[in-house]
Design a protein around this nucleic acid. Sequence first.
RNA 1: GGGCGCGUAGCUCAGCUGGUAGAGCAGCGGACUCUUAAUCCGCCGGUCCCCGGUUCGAGCCCGGGCGCGCUCACCA
Length: 498
Amino acid sequence: MATEKEILEARRNRAQELEKSGTALFPARVPRPLDSIPQLIAGHADSSAESLEASRQLVRIAGRIVGLRSFGKASFVSLQADGQQLQVWMKRDQVSAERYTEFKLYEVGDFVWAAGPLIRTQKGELTVDVQEFGFLAKSYRPLPEKWHGLVDVEQRYRQRYLDILTNPDTRRMLELRSRAVSTIRTILEERSFLEVETPILQPVYGGANARPFTTLHNTYEETLFLRISFELYLKRLIIAGIDRVYEIGRDFRNEGISKKHNPEFSMLEVYQAYADYTDMMELTETLVAETARRVLGTTQVERDGEMLELAPPWPRRSMAELIQEACGVNIREARTLEALRGAIKSAKISNIDADSTPTWSVLVDELFSKHVEPKLMQPTFVLDYPAELSPLAKRHADQPDLVERFEAFIGGMEIANAFSELNDPDDQRARFLEQAQAAAEGDEEAHPIDEDFLRALEHGMPPSGGMGMGIGRLTMILTGASHLREVKVFPHLRKRDG
RNA sequence: GGGCGCGUAGCUCAGCUGGUAGAGCAGCGGACUCUUAAUCCGCCGGUCCCCGGUUCGAGCCCGGGCGCGCUCACCA
C-alpha cells in the first residue's frame, strides 16, 4: 500500500474503526482548562526531574500529533500547538489496555488532548506522563515527510498551510511581520495619528504611476479600479482637517512579478499637516529603526552577509550627487536630453540605451535605478527627484524642475517614498494635464486626471508631508528574506488546471 | 515576454553511452515499556509532467505544450 489513494484509504479505514469504537472524529468540545505548550516549556526550562517529581504538577495539553514513536505497550507522542512541541508518554499499564488499543488508531496529523503529571524522562525530555487523553479531530491526509519536511518551492507556496505547519522559519516570519505591523500602529498612535480605511474600489485610480486592475460593479454598471495607492483619499482627509492620518492596507498594480514586486502588496501611507518631506524623513527612519528595535531587539540586520545599521540618522543624499559619484555624469550641468545623452556617451556608461530614452527625466531615472539603487545597501535617503516623474509632489522653491521628494533605500531596495505634498490646485491640474499628454503618447502608467480630487484641493489643503512604505519590503529587511513572496502568507502563483 | 535550468513512488532524491525503474521516509503486517529521523524483520507502492516524433527499443534523443526556479527586460 503506497499509492496516494491507498494511503488515504488506510487513513479513512482507521478513522472508521475509531468511530466504531465510540470515538467522535470531530467532537465539538475540548476539555478545559488547557495548558499552553509554549508556556509549559518556558516555565520548566530549568526544572529538574526531581523537582518535577516532587511537585507532580498536573497539566492538560491539546495539539496535533507530529511525531509518533511506538513500542509494544508504550508510545512517545510529540504534540504540536502554537508552533511548539511537547512530548507525551502513553503507557498501556497507566491508561488501561482498552484505551491503549484505541490510542493505537491515532496517527500523525490527528489532533488529541492528553493530561497527567509533568515529568522529565531519563533522556531529560519534558514530558506529560499521560493518565487521561482523548481525540479532538481527524486528519485524513498525511503530513509532509518528517525529516526533509516540505522543501519543494512550488508546493510550499501552493499549500502554504503545510509550510507554516512544518517549517518553523515560515511561522517565525509570520509572527515577525505581525509584530512589525502592530509596532508601526503603536508608534503612529503614540504620535496621535488616526488610522482610517479608504476605498479599495475606486472610480478613478491614482496616487502612483501604475497600470490598475479593472472591474465592474453590476448594479451601477460602473467601471471601477482596484486602488494602486491610498494617496488621493488620504489627502482628502487632510483637507478635512484630519491632520495626522494613516492607512495600512493592500494596493493592487497590474504589473510584473519579481523578487521585489507582487501584483497585490501591503502599504503604509502616512500624511501629516503642517509638515514637509524633512519631517517625513524623521518619521521614516524612526519607524524603521524603532520597529526593528522593538521586534528584533536590535537595529542591526544582516543582508547578503553585510551588516546594516538602521538607527537614525540616515544619510541624506541628492540624486544628482549619487549619480555623479556612481557614473561621473553631472545631471545638474547636463540639463537637456541632448546634453545628458552626450554626457552618458562620453562617460561610457554601460547598459543604458541613451538614444532610445524619450525624455531627460526618464534617462535620469535609468541612470539612477541601474547604477545607484543596487548599491544603496545601508539606509539612505535619496532627495530631489525630477518633477516630471512626481506629479503629486511640491516643487522646489529654487529649482522648479525638481520636487521635494525622497525615497528611502535599504539593502538596494526602495523601502519608502515621500514628498512635500503638492497643495496648489492649479499646479496640480497642470501636472495632471502633463500626465494626460504622456498617456496620449502611449504611457500606460501615466496618472489620470481626478477632477473630484482637484475640486477638493481648491477648497484648500494645508502644507503637508506624506510618506508611503512597503510593509513586505520592510519585512524582508527585518527577516533577511531575499524574495518578497517569502514574507507573504499566500503569494500569487499561476493557476493550475487539473 | 527573452535566455538558462528543472519536472521520476504520497514526500526527499538516485537512475551510466538509449536496453525496459531504484533508495530513504511515509504506508501495510509483525516484534518491542525511556523514544525523540526510535530500532529490527517482512511486504506493498510508478501515466518517469503532457502531446507528438526518431528508434527494434525512449525516464534518457528531437519538436511542441504546461508548471516551477534562476536571470534579463518590464515594473515602485
